[in-house]
Write a protein that binds this DNA or RNA. Structure first.
Lengths: 343, 343
DNA sequence: GTCTTTTAAATAACCGATTGTGCAAATTAG
DNA sequence: CTAATTTGCACAATCGGTTATTTAAAAGAC
């Protein structure tokens, strides 16, 4: 019960029409005139290709042209809405240019990321887009020597790799200023992975804002170390258990804030009456939460689109950017999770 | 500034070692003994392959073997958590078996779905997994004649295609029984796309439950017709405007319930005091909504895993299933969105 | 009418792997 | 010591396209 009734090949057409495969290939690639294939012949070939529903075998084409019209996309977790919205925009943009996407989920593990990239390497990919997991990017540099690559979200300022990310510093700075102007001086900050650019930039924004507002930084308020629900949950529990628990919490991702919400609920803390909260990353459900959460929103779709363009530019040799990376501004969506804390 | 410093090929090894490519290929594919390649030679070749970090060019391999170790995944919207969680499980499962996934977003459009599948066709894919968009599956039948295929979520009972989906009938039946036992007899039902199997099964479950409970079915309570936020919003607005507005709403997807929540909020209806609500599809945020929403949860990860297995079985010619499809039970997660309506 | 140029297309090499077949050299058999 | 067998590997075809080079016929030049 073999299924593969093989599709029409150039050879099939050649047999049917009596023209050589080279002639047919040329005509169908629009090079008929260059090679002085007569108008009549061209018409016959084009019609036959249509009638037989011929499309060239991409594998064979890829082998000969050393090009696969395929791009690798490596992300930590496709089920995270932050990444999936990026993936969606990326896929759309690439498809428009005739490229397909091979999706690889690195499950937030550097080892898997490296393994995955190695698997992709011998697939003749035309380029690769990575949301890196770890704080080291050496393996990405290695790749970049043989393959166009673009980094999304977590970039490596000292490694010459094209990237697109958000202006994490400004976003965190603005959010912290906002909190402080609402009277909060004791602000818990639950961060993601220390050493990664977005996280460290956010921390820098947080610190600078407090400094600007002449608020003494309480180092014990800076906690966390992972972008997951559990981190948000645990750290919130601990923050609330402090002698002077913070009056506001700044969660560095949608997952962290989800954990924080859980902990706050358990501890019967009302938002914002007892504790205010701001979250990095927006979410479709943000508006419908018990208390709608004010968020720093990133332009995920735009990031995806730009990443695609940066990569296609590298692939095609077009585009000539002075900068390695592009930082997109964040937006602040004010909802109801921050209270006035004026004494 | 050409980047592609081409990787090591069989020919390179051949030149270096003085053995023919066929010998090397055989050794590296574990067929050395079959072809009486001496132990010494095998060791030399294996070591050289290691040292040179050789991995066979998948494109060439694919061309020769008529196999790409690649699977196409076509889904309506990767940014919808329902689909992205399926995609994640699928990708994981396939990777374990050495297959990569080409991701295609059909943007909920039948035309794009068909276009996309056509593009995939000449990529020598080993199989394809589709969450179909339309209510017609003819093009999928066409595909199935040349390529292993598995359908997720929306299946076509009359077309002989392998599928995995939820037991939508039972889920909807249980939810409706639950509502009626809470005293609700006037239950608005906002459905998705009419004519698709999951939707129609849910409707059947809804109807059967009401019949069983001897509740007269008010046809004007069955509204909607699309799985999106707008449908949920509009239909809820309209339901609330009725002479006898329903005391409970059954939303057929996470997107629909999101729209319903928005409308309820606008109309200042409290959940569940004024209106009860149940949603098909769970969501990580469900617990943290203003009123946590009781939901019929589907086993998305399991669906993804099973789909992968069904496809790999077809590809490998293993597995021999009597049934075309598999329906997974749903779970009912009781939260706080349903009120007692006992007069 | 012969030589050159143009036209129109075919041949063959190639991309990098896999695989059926062939063929020396080494070994064993008789 | 010759024939048969086994050992160990190379040759060449193949997958389905693309492309540099050739070739044969037709047209034009002198």
């Amino acid at each position: 019960m073999t299924k593969k009734q093989s599709p029409v090949t150039l050879k099939d057409l050649s047999k049917e029409l009596g023209f050589s495969t080279s002639t047919i290939s040329r005509v169908l690639n629009g090079k008929g005139d260059d090679y002085r294939i007569s108008k009549d012949t061209q018409d016959i070939i084009k019609k036959a290709a249509q009638d037989n529903n011929f499309t060239p075998n991409q594998t064979a084409r890829g082998l000969r042209l050393q090009k696969s019209f395929t791009i690798g996309l490596v992300i930590p977790d496709i089920s995270n809405p932050f990444f999936s919205s990026i993936a969606r925009a990326l896929e759309n943009e690439c498809r428009k240019s005739g490229y397909s996407i091979i999706l690889c989920d690195s499950e937030d593990q550097t080892k898997l990321e490296i393994d995955t990239i190695n698997i992709l390497k011998n697939r003749n990919l035309d380029g690769i887009i990575v949301c890196p997991v770890g704080i080291q990017g050496k393996h990405l540099i290695d790749i970049s020597e043989t393959l166009p690559i673009v980094i999304i979200d977590r970039y490596f300022p000292n490694l010459k790799l094209k990237y697109v990310s958000s202006n994490n510093y400004q976003g965190a700075f603005d959010a912290t200023i906002y909190l402080s102007e609402k009277g909060h001086e004791n602000i818990g900050c639950i961060q993601g992975i220390v050493g990664t650019s977005p996280n460290d930039e956010r921390i820098r924004g947080y610190r600078d804002a407090l400094i600007k507002k002449n608020i003494k930084i309480d180092e014990s308020n800076i906690v966390g170390g992972n972008y997951d629900i559990q981190t948000g949950y645990i750290e919130t529990k601990l923050l609330l258990a402090k002698k002077n628990p913070p009056t506001a919490i700044f969660a560095f991702s949608n997952t962290i804030s989800l954990g924080a919400l859980k902990a706050l609920k358990e501890e019967k803390k009302r938002i914002p009456e007892d504790v205010s909260i701001i979250s990095f990353d927006d979410h479709p459900y943000s508006d419908f939460l018990e208390t709608p959460i004010s968020s720093i929103t990133q332009q995920n779709e735009l990031m995806g689109k730009i990443a695609a363009k940066l990569l296609l530019d590298q692939i095609n040799g077009t585009g000539n950017y002075e900068q390695d990376g592009i930082l997109l501004p964040t937006n602040f969506t004010k909802r109801k999770s921050v209270n006035n804390n004026i004494k």
